[in-house]
Simulated assay, not measured.
Amino acid sequence: MAVSLRRDREALRGRYTPNLWPVWIVAPVALIAAGALGWVIYHYAYDHFAQAAADQEPPKPVNINDPLKATVTALTLIGAVLAGLYAYRKQLLAEGDAHRADASQLADRYTTAAEQLGHDQAAVRLAGVYALARLADDWAEQRQVCIDALCAYLRMPYEPDPTAPEHKAGEREVRQTIIRVIRDHLQQPDAATAWCERNFDFTSAVFDGGSFSTSHFRGTVDFGGAEFTGGRVDFRSTMFRGGRVTFGNAGFRGGRVDFGGAEFSDRVDFNGAEFSGGTVTFVRAMFSGGRVDFNDATLSGGTVSFPGATFSGTSFDWGPVPVPTGA
């Protein structure tokens, strides 16, 4: 990703370089054009004044100063217009240079943040998380790229057990910080730096805690194959609207996943999910429209409950999961 952005940045540096003719060609051509234009204007003005003088009684000779003044005035106006066009073009070029400089700086910031995320020390990785979040706020054109990088980090292999040899010190704090940063950007859909309309790919990520409560997801949200292994993962009062939400083949093996008061207004997919431990609850959740799919889900432990949930215009395929009241 960093290599691709650097390549795009290098391409931008020369993309808008103006292809100008040499001065020794432009200068004579400009002088010839100006002379020809002046000659045409002079003769047109002379004919005009000559006609006006001939129409008078008695006819009067043409005052040579009149066509000369008209010619000079016309050339001055044309020169002023050309000077304005030149200044406008120069301003466009300056703005293009500034835009390319900004894009280059933003690409450098992305490269630095990505390198920080791959650092061995957790403190440096934390700095990379915050750097990417700030960059996403500043770089609307590549906001999705920054979000994808944060989601990709969550999809990387993770061992939550601190006694396991694969466990990395400080890794849980880094991952919880990413979740917290994402949640903070999903609270106000109308904010200029909101991420609500973006897509989030959490496929095969491991969650041992974290809160997405009161978030607004309006794009595609994919938890397919994710593992919920412990702690509390909070989706309370979260709104899933305008995009598909999938927990297909996700594993709920411990802890508590709380969808209390969440609102689902499109398709919700738990197809092939495995409930083998912990608690998944949909207390007072609201399902309206779309389809809720628990087909091929397995329930071998733990609990799945829907107390107080409401359903409106929703079709269901529950598989082995107990059908909630009112479904």
Rank of each mutant, 00 (worst) to 15 (best):
M1N: 09
L5N: 15
R7I: 12
E10L: 14
L12Q: 07
T17S: 08
L20V: 11
L20N: 08
P28A: 10
L31D: 08
I32D: 03
I32P: 00
A36G: 15
G38I: 06
Y42F: 15
A45V: 10
V62S: 02
I64V: 08
D66S: 13
L68H: 03
T71F: 03
G84E: 03
G84L: 15
L85E: 05
E95Y: 10
L106H: 11
T112H: 04
E115S: 15
E115G: 15
Q116T: 01
D120K: 14
Q121M: 02
V124P: 00
L126R: 15
A131V: 05
I147V: 15
A149N: 04
R155D: 07
M156Y: 02
P157V: 11
D161E: 09
E166Y: 05
R172Y: 04
R172V: 06
R172G: 07
H185V: 01
A191Q: 13
A192F: 00
T193V: 13
T193I: 04
N199I: 00
F212M: 07
R218Y: 03
R218V: 03
T220H: 08
V221Q: 02
F223N: 00
G225E: 05
A226C: 09
G230N: 14
R232T: 12
G255F: 00
D258I: 10
D258Q: 08
N271P: 00
G272T: 09
G272F: 07
A273F: 02
G278P: 08
F282T: 02
F282M: 07
A285L: 08
V292T: 14
D296V: 05
T298N: 13
S300Q: 11
G302T: 07
T314A: 04
T325H: 02
